[in-house]
Amino acid sequence: MLATIIQRAVMQGTPLLFGSTGEILTEKSGHLNLGIPGIMYVGAISGVAGAFLYEQSVASPDLLNPFLAVLIPLLCALVGATFMGLIYCFLTVSLRANQNVTGLALTTFGIGVGNFFGGSLIKLVDSDVPSIALSKTSNFFKTQLPFASNLGWFGEIFLSYGFLVYVAIIVAIISSYILNKTRMGLHLRAVGESPETADAAGINVTKYKYISTCIGSAIAGLGGLYYVMDYANGVWSNNGFGDRGWLSIALVIFSVWRPSLSILGSILFGFLYVIPTYIPDISVSAKKLFEMLPYVVTIIVLIITSMRNKKENQPPQALGLPYFREER
């Protein structure tokens, strides 16, 4: 039973892990991207659209090429999410628009795009299927290692997931490594802490902001893709993704801007999410209070870190501020 809970927690946590890793990369460049929820929706729907069109293009679902069936949605999700990141960058980096307003508009837009195409895709391509259920494609995404089911609890906890779960963890570890151990990471953190200093040291501030925000958006988009293709078995339902985008931003604060901590944090958040299911006789309404917990925990973390005022645990110093090089 514990193994099942952990397994469910990991699956719940994976979209959050993608989202928070992406948001951390973005915030490290000094940009608070409140568009992440929208970006994750767009990632999801782009993947769905890609898979849907591919499934429609072959005569029978059995003829799907497993490789293409995974690759097409994956690329679509990356492209869609990156495009959202580009909109955000162009407005906030190049045009110095207010980050909060831009982010919120991006979320409105992104959720709109997700729900709109999710609800209208069938009509738009004049298809006769009753609803978007990409179970075939989803099966490819959910493919596990063949021997996982033979390994008992070990297999269940560690090996029972579709490949995107491992991608999420690997991406978080790589991000953590890049941020802390490479020159690129050092430069990126400098941009977010003090763009003037980075600029004076000859670092191309704009380039770093663009690249980190776009890569961050692409990663977050995978969170949406994972949710719909793996977690939701390829079935799109409007607003099904819920508030996971905001939870991802909460997770960023919870893990004090460290992708490696995000891995654990995402499992904890996932755990809080699934735990009511395992409490016997819990009312539907009490579940709602459980869903509040990740946010409450995040607020507590936010308060504690600001009380302790340890410099390493603060948001990047230039977070939210546009950078403008005064003319000399």
């Binding site: 020159r183 050092l186 802490e193 003090s194 004076a200 040291a201």
Partner: peptide
């Protein structure tokens, strides 16, 4: 001074170096 507060001395010294 143009230094990043949360960086160590060494990190600041090599910042921007290619």
């Amino acid at each position: 001074f143009k230094l990043v507060d949360v960086f160590s001395a060494a990190e600041n010294i090599v910042l921007g170096l290619e």
